[in-house]
Design a protein around this nucleic acid. Sequence first.
RNA 1: GGUCCGCUAGCUCAAUUGGCAGAGCAACUGACUCUUAAUUAGUAGGUUCUCGGUUCAAGUCCGAGGCGGAUCACCA
Length: 515
Amino acid sequence: MRANPIPETPDQTNPDSGGVAEERLLETRVQKAANLRARGIDPYPARFKPTVTSIRAVARLEAREAKLGEGAKTRSVTIAGRVMARRGMGKAAFLDIKDADGKIQVHARQDVLGADFAILDDLDIGDIVGVKGPVFRTRRGEPSVEARSFTMLTKAVRGLPDKWAGLQDIEKRFRQRELDLITNDRSMALVRTRSAIVSAIRRFMEKQDFIEVETPVMVNVAAGASAQPFQTHHNALNRDLYLRIATELHLKRLVVGGIDRVFEIGRIFRNEGIDAEHNPEFTTIESYQAYADYNDVMQMVEDLVSSVAQSVTGSMIIPSLNESEPDIDLTPPWPRLDLRTEIMNRTGIDFLNENEVESLSGAMRERGIHVEDGLPWGRLLDKVISAEVEPHLIQPVFLVDYPTEMSPLAKHKPEDDRIVERFEAFAIGTEFANAFTELNDPVEQRKRFEEQERLRQSFGDDEMDRLDEDFLVAMEHGMPPAGGLGLGIDRLSLLITGERSIREVIAFPQLRRLD
RNA sequence: GGUCCGCUAGCUCAAUUGGCAGAGCAACUGACUCUUAAUUAGUAGGUUCUCGGUUCAAGUCCGAGGCGGAUCACCA
């Protein structure tokens, strides 16, 4: 055992760098790395090749046991992973090693390991190591790698959170997600599930002959949705640019160009509040399909969501994570509820009658719905939906046929220009998809945008959709009839994982910086 | 943005009415060759989120602020 020098006077030069105790813990481990170097051992070697993962190593042992019976040993394997626990017994030690697949125990004995055993003097929980040797089963039945050689792969100079309780502090879990992943299996599972969801979506779309594209994130006009954009600046062009708030308009231009089935999975940015359902950057899939209408898209959405759930979780029924909420059954078909009827049933308000700001806001006040002054009609009605209808939509459902004024990019019904062919998909009280039969009449599209601009002027509402001249010119060249979809991947991940906070399904959610 | 709740050792948590800030894990010095929350003897570790106030005395009470959570408002 070598003595680790403890600083006689704590470092006062940088009082913000953490407590003295923390500094000392770090210093101790840095010293251990130096100890290894002094003995000619690189604590950060560049290469190491494991031959099996923990799970495969155990599988090999089981196969061997099936053939040879109890007491069987495999041929030598090589594993690598992080030391999660350590039980030392003088001239022997047990280590729990965690890799990408799971955990396996390592048994290190001085007589077996020889010189490498001395590495354990400078080993800490949290270090990443490589171990080579046969897999056997201990007397207590634990599959274990009998260490014949032992390699330090990465000396960690900070310790892990509590080995039993893990990292519990919610704020730390989000700010230091890597520690959350190391110690909390649920967090790792959520990252993997989200990845599987995106992968399944991509396979679903490709199977239906959609092609995936990438369109600009930085745009001259943040159009295609109602939201405030983030602003940035390009120095060489000396132009202000915006981060996109939707991928819609570029994708439609690709449909004009002849890509009949197109989709993009991408990040969009909305300069708005942050809460359990909103992160300022979030991921959507938007798709556009020529010669389809919103009924086709509706069917695609329920097929997509249910089959993604099936392939990711093995079931279309998502079990509730707590007693107070029901399981969610994603099995298609989902009910199609007429929006106007649904609002009337919930509130008695008929949006075709209350078609002026005054009458609608009056009706809302009568119903006890808080009305903010200065909002245009469409935003008011949106509020009625989100306050009075949306919270009741727990099982998956489509709300169908929206007012034209709140849907500037959707085609109106053939028999009624006050209503557009649009639906939104809801579950767990939250909207997760929005789709319509796309408006492709360029003259009407221009009129609708101009109306949005007029509303923006008169209401001073920064969130109205904006007029994008490049898009309008494209439409003037003719876009085939098409059905379009926007679906929130984060929201879908909430639905499929059973989580209720978007921060749980985003690896690094936006948080206020610590100063 | 409003309201409520939380912030104590590296991690997980205690601390009675305002009365000496404590435990487990991790760490450090030892013992220990089949343990698995190993066992075992000892040691060290604190700006109780920050600033101010009340008080003989503040982790605890009051005020302001920071960060987070829940909820309402707004958005997807």
